[in-house]
Amino acid sequence: MKLRSFKPLGAVLAAGLISLSAATGVARAADSTQPIVIPIHNWSSQIVMAYVLGGMFESMGNNVEYVPADSQAVYESIRNGDVTISHEVWQSTFGKSFYNAMQKGGVIDAGTHSATTLEEMGVPNWVIEQNLCPGLPNWEALADCHENFTTADSGGKGRWLEGPQSWHGDLMPERLEALGLADKWTVKFAGGADALWTELASAKKEGRGTIVFNWTPNFTDADGFTFIEFPEYYEGCRKSDGGDGKCGSPKGWLKKAANYKFPRTHPAAYTAFSRVDFSTKQIGEMAALVDTDKMDHKDAAKKWLADNEGVWQPWVK
């Protein structure tokens, strides 16, 4: 008896479930309400852009969440779905981590910004102004000015302060070798970006020469920074790609990455994200709001969104 009386209830439940799933099926056209997880790294333009993108997604009715993450380790998290997107994938710094994760599966390429990046060895402008290495930015000038760039532990050679070895492996030592500069110059790997900026700051105070790895767009642009002009890059010129290694860095791309499920769970947001395209100038503006105008990152993003409706409104439509 009892069982029978349950039957109609079961039918109602089943019907309810079906209609519910039908409803969600219809709702599939819209984005899921699960939050989109945007990573926050430790440099200004990236953080402002994170809040800018967050603001865009929110204007589309999406929920957004920000999570601090290491800029190298984040690709593993995107792969696992713990983080949804990454909006600043620098070619030479993060290219390796990005492709590693893509190869393992779970990360998709969500397009490229029109901003090109340059990541190269260079000197702060005062080095040129004080003529510490006559002939710069041409690389050939390096042949006879290394004495101005020595440090206590460089063994009499001039020192290049390269980023952490995790960024591009032994690229710079190989380049020195290939260009025949290895007997005059040596490479020191810094532990992180902080170390690079500290080196710039302390060299500036002391007025001594320094050659450091740097990139643009970056906040150091404001102080004036000149990249050394090495022989032009071409496909396959690097030692690791089988070339002779006598070449500088290419103009790098700046990509966007996303978790493979993102297009399916948030189709509208994904479409907007894939349309997002910042120029070098725009990224510079975002960084400047924080670095020069000393604004808080969130406020900077708000201001940027308010000032540039014409830029981002078409993406979210």
């Binding site: 290491d70 190298q72 380790a73 690709y75 593993e76 993060f94 390796k96 981590s97 590693n100 190869q103 393992k104 302060l161 952490p164 070895q165 995790s166 020191k188 790997f189 810094a190 532990g191 992180g192 902080d194 170390a195």
Partner: peptide, 23 residues
């Protein structure tokens, strides 16, 4: 922490393992 300044010891590789394929 030393590796964050810049060394060529085990620390540097530990830092590097954050981005390694076999991290």
């Amino acid at each position: 922490i030393g590796a964050l300044i810049g060394t060529d010891d085990l620390g540097q590789l530990i830092l590097k393992s954050l981005s390694d394929r076999e991290g």
